[in-house]
Design a protein around this nucleic acid. Structure first.
Lengths: 193, 193
DNA sequence: GTCTATATACAGATAGAC
DNA sequence: GTCTATCTGTATATAGAC
């Protein structure tokens, strides 16, 4: 890996962990094994470095989503495996943590570029998710758009919860909310009552 | 309002907006109308100030939850109004924004105190929510605990979404995910199929 | 309790030698 | 492309006068 990539990767990790203001270029340089001024040979300044990380994360997350969708089987089990894959990516990969932190709390001066990049990301997501939703046997009471909205809410809830619950509890909560979601969107067979 | 309270309130707002490292005591002092060293007459240092804000937010959020639960009517409509009230509090009040930011991304050195405080908070929440869940006519397929887990997931999803969607879209998404949630947890009447 | 003045540390960024 | 040296600004925090 060349120096620029090392800086990028280290910056990603530090920004995700300590926040933009909490991360110093000195720390990044030390971890990479260079001196601080050398960073400026690869990136114009701290803001430009941050923006480069944003773009990298966008590409990386998109790729992960595509992989998860491709390897998924069909209908319900497929959707579940896609969501699980995404939730795990967001909680485990440093790219995922970075994504979560800065879509929610972008540094003031960089909010614009962050928002534009990640909003574009969600549009691309929609295109990938809708066909999967279509393969489900939806309840006649629920439209595709409602199912998609509820799906994002589910995923957003999961990703938040990975930030502050232990792994065991996260898994339990995912199963429960997944079950309720599927009960809510699925075509009902009359089960007595 | 006395000086200590002014500092506390201003710190809450600045921390919520700019993050811990991104907030300087100088800014806080200016906004309060005093000089920076005066802050140290009321709080030992920046960390102590932050901890005081955490405690304040805990008390404030708990109070909001109690108020929402007390004024709610019964069963389904009641639960909906409670959740709406909480989601609005989290998205509109500065206390809510602070809560969201630091339960998700506490500054490294203060993670312990943040986690202890907010975990205590959730235990108290459970005690308040369970009776409300009990008043619903739950589907025989869903346990109380599952419904509660799914409920928190719903609320977590909503609160995240208030951070990056416009108000209109937030409302649409809430309605959709609420509908799917209620479909999922409610006792089914056989509607043909 | 509030201030001015200051100590100390470290941040981002640049100049210029190699 | 990397370094040493340095500029400049600003951060937290304290000492001590009023």
């Amino acid at each position: 890996m060349n120096t620029a990539d090392s800086i990028l990767q280290t910056a990603l990790s530090e920004f995700a962990e300590r926040g933009y203001s909490g991360t110093s270029l000195n720390t990044i340089a030390n971890e990479v094994g260079i001196k601080k001024p050398s960073i400026y040979n690869h990136f114009k300044n701290k803001e430009a470095l941050f923006e480069a990380v944003v773009k990298k994360v966008y590409v990386d997350y998109m790729q992960t989503l595509k992989i998860e969708i491709d390897k998924a089987p069909s209908a319900e089990a497929g959707l579940k495996s896609i969501l699980w894959g995404l939730a795990n990516y967001l909680s485990d990969a440093e790219e995922g943590k970075f994504y979560m932190r800065y879509i929610l709390f972008p540094p003031e001066a960089l909010a614009d570029v962050v928002n534009r990049t990640f909003m574009q990301f969600e549009e691309d997501c929609n295109k990938l998710f809708l066909p999967v939703i279509n393969r489900l046997e939806l309840s006649p009471d629920v439209t595709d758009e409602e199912a998609l909205d509820a799906l994002y809410c589910l995923l957003d809830g999961w990703t938040v919860q990975t930030l502050y619950y232990s792994h065991d509890i996260v898994l339990r909560k995912r199963e429960a909310s997944w079950k309720v979601f599927m009960e809510g969107v699925s075509r009902k067979e009359s089960k007595g009552s």
